[in-house]
Write a protein that binds this DNA or RNA. Structure first.
Lengths: 233, 233
DNA sequence: ACGTTGAGATTGCCG
DNA sequence: CGGCAATGTCAACGT
């Protein structure tokens, strides 16, 4: 064959959607077989292939992840990967076959648990320590905003740093904020509390050495309390 | 409204495929946002919704699993589930919108690793222990067949039980076989070896207490050796 | 019905 | 760069 083999799907192409009556066989980590039925075959731009039925949201019945190579003949598709795993799709009838250029995917932005934690704790600072009242979220200092500034039951200032995972650099960050806040006569002396879902032993030790309190909070419980409040009224 | 709300997707409908320029927001366990881009929206017969880009095989960018309810307006889809999680798809442009009746899915048949392991080890019992020679696969006893019966280098009988995962009940099963096999003067005394990809500590302890050997085998390696043999000739 | 466990997991994070 | 843990884990099986 002199001309390039167009049956080989390379990365960067459009998404291809095929609805076909087919059987599917996978041989790799395990062997699996799908009897003859109508299914959706999805070939993504990156070359990966997945076989969907109209159930089992969202997981496909079978698939082949990149890196892999698709040899798509009229009656049979064979997808192989470097590990020697194969996905063989034997096609009886094609009901639909479309290609669509999808363009770039800007990517998923997960609004981290940290932001949400801050929201929840701003709404209920007493979950950190009894009697704590919020002064301001994102209280500004000249080296950046501290997550929460509160006053305790005795009216003393408390700076709170919130992390998803409590590690040593989070404690150091809080120490820097505390230095800055202590320059303000209206706040001084400012106590620090480091809050996270889990605080690593190293961070706990450093915090203790710096006179900073540590509080581990349960995210689900906080969310539960929060929704609990919402549903009460 | 007197007529039924057709914008509500119930289970049992056809599969719907939409390619649309859209933004997507998920609020539930976490919050996530997808900027405006062209994506594939898949609505399965069971009502589940998933949002695919043309990368990240096979996992969708966002999804909502059953049980859930889809309210599909022209500009916005809102999928909710009983836990109060929401998936909101705001549609700018629709590039494709098809529905297709998929019919029944006969279901996936997984040919277990255990059967394949037995095949591979029957072909190469020396992978279990040097000098081991196969007498018979599925050697019958009156309480069921033992996976492999072998003879070691000294001609002594060895009964082998093969599991994908070595747990305590697999050891007990082998113990029962050994009792039976020991009744046969032509075999007695019969040694036992428990073979699995991984053997749990509890099972190892019990095996040791019963004088049964434990061998962990690497499935991929065995397959490799096997295909190695096949490709050598 | 509920808890336990495995999964062709994938993905991020840490050391 | 390789091992470990989390995942919006899900799904299947045993109690």
């Amino acid at each position: 064959m002199a001309e390039p083999d167009r049956s080989v799907q390379q990365n960067g192409g459009p998404m291809r959607l095929v609805i076909a009556t087919c059987t599917v066989d996978y041989a790799g980590r395990l062997s699996a077989h799908l009897p003859l039925a109508k299914r959706l075959l999805m070939v993504k731009a990156d070359g990966s292939v997945s076989v969907h039925s109209d159930g089992q949201a969202y997981k496909p019945l079978n698939w082949m992840s990149i890196p892999c190579e698709l040899r798509a003949g009229p009656d049979q598709w064979v997808v192989t990967n470097p590990k020697g795993e194969t996905l063989t799709i034997s096609i009886e009838v094609v009901h639909l076959d479309i290609e669509h250029e999808m363009g770039d995917e800007p990517g998923l932005r997960k609004d981290g648990v940290e932001a949400h934690l801050q929201e929840l704790l701003a709404a209920r600072p007493e979950a950190i320590a009894a009697g704590l009242k919020l002064v301001r979220r994102e209280y500004p200092t000249d080296i950046g905003p501290v997550d929460l500034l509160c006053r305790d039951a005795e009216g003393r200032a408390v700076a709170i740093e919130i992390k998803r995972r409590g590690e040593i650099d989070g404690v150091e960050q809080l120490v820097r904020y505390l230095e800055r806040l202590d320059l303000d006569g209206r706040l001084r002396p400012v106590r620090g509390v480091f809050v996270a879902q889990v605080i690593k032993p190293q961070a706990q030790v450093l915090a203790a050495a710096r006179g900073i309190g540590c509080v581990e909070v349960d995210y689900d419980e906080l969310r539960g309390l929060d929704t609990g409040r919402l549903t009460l009224f």
